[in-house]
Every structure is written in C-alpha cells, then in structure tokens.
Design a protein around this nucleic acid. Structure first.
Lengths: 260, 260
DNA sequence: ACCTGAACACCGTTCAAGT
DNA sequence: ACCTGAACACCGTTCAAGT
C-alpha cells in the first residue's frame, strides 16, 4: 500500500476531487514537467523497481528535478498512483461495440465476436495487463479504481455479460466470478514473473527450483501429484491451459444456469 | 506491501529459514515477550489500525517495550507479517476428513458433507477470514503463503475438489476459479467494511452515499441499472445472494464439464 | 507560475552497549 | 539471554522562500 497515509485520512480519490488546473496558459512553452510526463515516468519506475521501490524522491530524481517539484502537479503520492492505475487500465483492448461514451477513455478497440469469445478476449487482455504491470494488483486493492479507463472496462465487461443470456440480477455474480478469478490468476502470474526477473532465472528454472526445494515435505505430496497429472510442457503452457479451462468452467456454468 | 525491502533483497520466507530458537531454557520464568504474544499483538494492531498503520515501533510500544526488543524474537518485519498471515489462515475451519497430518496446523474442524456443501463451506470460511482481517489480502499477494495453516487449507481445498469428479489435470483450473473468486470477493468486502468503520457509517449508509455521489455520472448508468435489477434488501443480503450464486455458477460449470 | 531547500515526523534495521 | 539507545539511510509532506 501507499505508505502515505500514516494516520487514517479522509481518503478522497483523484477522480472525486477536482484536478489541479493545467498549467501553460496562452502559447508559452511548457516549462519542463507536465501531468503526462509524470505519469509516464511513474509507470516506468513502477515497472522497473516495483511498488516498494517507488518513491516521490526517486521519481523526482528520475525526472531530473527536486523532490518537491512533482507536488506542483499532483496532490499526493496516492493521487499519482491512482493516475498510474487508470493509465494501466487503459492498456486493455476492449471489444469495439461495447465502448460507451466515457470521457477520457484511452482504450484501443478490438474486433466484435460472440459473447464467449468477447469474454475470453477481455479476460485475457485483463490478465496480460496484470502480468505486464505487477504493481497494478495491489493498487486496485488500495484505491477505488473508478477512473475513466476502469469505468470503460467495467462497462465493456457488463455489456459482454449482458449477451450471455443471464438475467440482470445474476450479472454481478457472473462478473465477479470471472473477473475476480482473472485478477487472482494474473496477480500470481505477474508476481512470479517479477520474481524471475529479480532472480535472473527463466520461469521454468525458478519453477523447478521451487518444486525441488519442497521435495522432502510430505504436506505437498498431494499438490505434487496433481501437478504431475497436469502434464508436461513449459510453465507457460500449463498456465495457458489452466486459464483457458477455468474460463470454460465459468462459461459452462453460465450456460447451465442462465435458463432459470 | 511491507516497506522493509527498500532495495530488492533475496526474499527468504520465514517458512524456508530456520526459526530463531525458543528462549526460556529450563524452568525459568518467561521474561516478558515471546513468539505467541508478539504475533497476537501484531494481529490485534493490524485489525485495529490496518497494514499501513502497523510499524515495528508501534508494535513495540503496544508491548510496552523498546523498538528493537522485538528483533530478538523475529528476524524482520516481513517474517513477522508472514507469521501473522499464517495465523490468520489458521482461523479457517476445515472439513474434518480433509485434514492431513500437517505439523503445526491449528485449524478447527467442521462437519463432513458432499463436495458441493464442503466447497461452499470452505469458500465461506475463507471469505469470512478475509473480511475479518482486511490486511490478509495484501499479505497473501506479498508473501509465499506456505505456512502450515495455509498448506492445510490448500490440501483441504484440493481434497474437496477431488470429489467433484473432475479429472486430476483439471483440478488446478477449478481450484483457481473458485478460490481466486473468493479471494477477490472477500477482499473487496473487507475493504468496504474497514472503510465503514473508519467513516463511522453502517454499510448501508456508506453504500447509499457512494451511489448518490455518482448519480449525475452517465458512465455509471448501466451499472446502476444492473444494481437496481439485483433487487432490494440490505447491502449484506445482496452480497450473500451474489456470493452464493457465483459459487452456484462455478459448481454448475464443474458438473457440466467433468464428464469430458 | 513553477521550482527549491530546509525541516518535521515518521520508517526498518544495524550495531555497540548494557544487565 | 534479553533488552536498550543512538545512529543510519530512508520515507511523504509542509512551508517559506526564491525566480
């Protein structure tokens, strides 16, 4: 979590408080920093060093500026992280016809298909973003996540699920089942990938190292048996299969119960 | 996340490094602190102040002791948090016949039933613990979570899913679908409850406040429509229904695809 | 309008010293 | 064996001051 809140504070979101006015009046040259540059540098740092390695001072150094300059553009560290969070949500490609007129939405748009394909597509896009930016998961837990890109994503997910044939009052359950699953799956996958990068190992190398470090622990016998049953291939291939079949399960469940 | 790791460190887990030897040799009186007391105080503080409000100095003050005393018993803050994490996992009641001989397991045991009932039971126990201790979710993302209680829980979850009739190679998918869903659901629920406590509002009060604060935002029209379709009752009742039906979907999916 | 510098109240942890 | 105190290298943020 952001360590900014030493004591519990009122907790306003960037999206609920008016933003700092854009500088650069008239036709003057921009002086150096601006909102876009700051958020981009923030995401770069977060990708490179992780959430724990990120600090306002570190960011300022990266921008070649003194520690306090950033505060001219951004109210707090938390607000900045909310901006980075929503920027990352904007990297999720959305099925084209699901995108309503959300102001500030930066999503790229993908091809339309039937609802199962759209669901799989959204899920895999979401997963990819979570893996690409491992700092996303903790931030989503920490903040409200109601920025324009997050809202557009939620609306797209709702629009897709609407075509599943489930009655409206069952949609929240189905949405939670699918997207909480993807969140957890992508979170674990992203953390593992980050761990690999940090250790300088490939995913398969680290995986086998972990497996063999638990070799003599009988509590893990059953887990090992199941993992072996899952069959060969690389870690990545196993994960693709697990992910795809879990979505198949969810879709099958929806198809089974939508008639009631 | 624990801010202990300013720079990236080797990342050993408590469960992978031998513990500090228990003090109190012979029959001497315990001098003051001990492992159990420290973890208990840690959980009390985490419940009361949240993860962001917890610090080693704060804990020491709570224990009536100087800041550095705790370090006699515990290697780092991260190790201490791992101990608290597993202690919380130990609060999950497990279906009795699923518990193998995991050393150090503190779980209480629950009645046996058919696999659907056992699954629902485990899911709801897991959910309750996540809600009771909102600091659990971020810690589970941060650490390996391979303490004795976590392992016993995973083994129980596997044992229950084994009875679903799914072939072994499909078990990881089904387990991920169900328990990642519960994790996300319980995380959101726990955060909302904590927010309510902090604001001094009931869940329904805060909920209606949030809804009405988004009243004039057309991007939320569709969400609002769905929420209204979901029907009346308290926030808690809506959540129970959503949770139960999401599990129904997962179970229906498993039953639909287990024959292949 | 935009940026700086010093300062405040915090962190986790090391290390030498006390009893 | 157990606990303390001072110190180090960090935080986020405030505030008065510079240009």
């Amino acid at each position: 979590m952001a360590t900014g809140s030493r004591t519990v504070r009122p907790r306003s979101s960037v999206w609920l408080s008016e933003r700092k006015a854009p500088r650069r009046k008239g036709d003057q040259q921009p002086v150096g920093l601006d909102h876009v540059k700051i958020v981009a540098a923030t995401m770069r740092l977060l990708d490179a060093e992780g959430l724990a390695g990120f600090s306002m001072r570190r960011l300022a150094a990266e921008l070649g500026v003194t520690a306090m300059s950033v505060y001219w553009y951004v109210e707090t560290k938390d607000h900045l992280l909310e901006l980075a969070l929503d920027a990352a949500m904007g990297e999720i490609a959305l099925p084209v016809e699901t995108v309503g007129p959300v102001e500030g939405c930066e999503h790229t748009l993908a091809e339309p298909r039937d609802w199962r394909e759209q669901l799989r597509q959204l899920a895999s896009e979401y997963r990819r973003v979570l893996v690409r930016h491992p700092w996303l998961s903790p931030l989503m837990g920490e903040y409200l996540n109601i920025g324009p890109n997050a809202v557009a994503f939620n609306n797209a997910a709702q629009a897709v699920m609407l075509n599943s044939g489930l009655p409206d009052d069952k949609l929240p359950s189905a949405l939670a089942l699918v997207y909480q699953f993807v969140y957890g799956f992508g979170t674990i996958e992203g953390r593992f990938a980050a761990r690999c990068r940090a250790a300088g190992l490939s995913q398969d190398e680290l995986f086998h190292e972990m497996v063999s470090s638990l070799e003599d622990r009988p509590e893990f016998d059953e887990s090992r048996r199941i993992m072996e049953a899952r069959g060969g291939g690389t870690v990545e291939q196993m994960r693709e299969r697990d992910f795809a079949f879990a979505l198949d399960l969810a879709i099958a469940g929806i198809e089974a119960l939508r008639g009631r």
